[in-house]
């Protein structure tokens, strides 16, 4: 502001220069993890595209949510009655119940939750592919690190903060809706707690933890290396579509060893998740089922490699040397 342009008597810059030093207690650096995570989520959800994708991701949740209600409602109708679907169609009650319970498994069983997690995968992949650049890639690309690391925090806080944002995003699409479906099934059921239900509750949490462990480090690592949205999206397409196709072609069509299926990470995560949920393996042909220990090794090693790569990337950032 030019002094000569000021109104007489109006405050000058000097009037604002009285510092009031902070005498309170500062939080520990670990609290910055939440600040970083919240900032990352804010970056994502300030974009309409992410809201659109997130709402798309919830469509499946609503399918299960209303499917469970429909099953309970159909079960409460008179036996032999046909149920009207829309203005014209009518469907026998037994057929509707069979479809919901046997085919779609909308019965609150572990299989339902396994199906739900697996089918949410596609939208998770799309969201993660687009979120990578926003969350981490741009920091590497535009060298934003001095703003972070000139504060009393370290690379670990940064990584945990960004990982927290990615984990929240992932679980908002998978674990949280699954928990809502679990409690809905409980409310619609007999309201009783049993060891089986408690086990299912923790299995859902465990499944979410496996997905978080398997996908978040991979997202951070790929975003730190590729930085831009398109390359990151291509990498995710390669990992979760191309490799899936390759694995199916090798094992199912060309008769390669079943362990080749482990190159499909989403399938690996699903297998570990199904073990946690305690459901039987659903592979139609036992010969196409990879060994569980190999799957477990892949699910353990890939995130570890991702974290090692992240560490290397961060060590190459000039300000962190």
């Amino acid at each position: 502001m030019n002094e000569s342009l000021r109104e007489p008597g109006s405050p000058t810059l000097g009037d604002f220069l009285e510092y009031r030093p902070f005498h309170g207690k500062l939080r520990r650096p670990s609290y910055a993890i939440w600040a970083i995570g919240r900032t990352g989520l804010g970056l994502l959800f300030r974009r309409k595209l992410f809201w659109g994708l997130y709402l798309m991701g919830l469509i499946l949740f609503f399918l299960y949510f209303f499917g469970q209600y429909l099953l309970v409602w159909a079960g409460s109708q008179d036996f032999g009655q046909s149920i009207r679907i829309g203005p014209f169609a009518r469907i026998p009650r037994k057929e509707l119940i069979d479809t919901l319970r046997t085919m779609l498994k909308m019965d609150g069983s572990p299989t339902m939750f396994h199906n739900f997690f697996q089918t949410q995968g596609s939208i998770v992949m799309v969201l993660f592919a687009l979120a990578g650049a926003q969350l981490v890639g741009n920091d590497f690309r535009f060298r934003s690190f001095p703003f972070y690391f000139s504060k009393p925090i370290g690379p670990l806080h940064y990584l945990l903060g960004k990982g927290l944002a990615a984990a929240v995003l992932l679980n908002l699409l998978t674990t949280i809706p699954a928990l809502l479906l679990f409690f809905q099934a409980w409310f619609l059921g007999d309201w009783s707690w049993s060891m089986e239900k408690i086990r299912l509750l923790f299995s859902i949490l465990g499944y979410g933890a496996v997905l978080t462990w398997g996908l978040v480090p991979l997202l951070l690592a790929s975003a730190s290396g590729l930085t831009r949205t398109i390359p990151i999206a291509m990498f995710w397409i390669f990992c979760f579509l191309f490799l899936r196709g390759i694995s199916e072609g090798l094992v199912d069509r060309l008769g390669y060893a079943a362990n080749w299926k482990t190159i499909d990470l989403w399938n690996d995560l699903g297998m570990v998740g199904s073990r946690i949920l305690g459901i039987a393996d659903e592979a139609k042909n036992r010969n196409t089922k990879p060994e569980f220990m190999v799957v477990l090794a892949i699910v353990t090693v890939i995130p570890l490699l991702s974290l090692a790569y992240l560490r290397m990337r961060l060590s190459k950032v000039e300000v962190l040397r």
């Binding site: 609290y31 910055a32 804010g42 974009r47 741009n138």
Partner: peptide, 26 residues
């Protein structure tokens, strides 16, 4: 720093508030 790569979606106040939180302020 010399670079000015901020989070463009945030307002100036929000950005500075984030920076203060990184210092440990509530």
């Amino acid at each position: 720093p010399e670079t000015d790569s901020f989070y463009e979606e945030y307002t100036t106040l929000e950005f500075l508030t984030i920076m203060a939180r990184l210092h440990g302020f509530r």
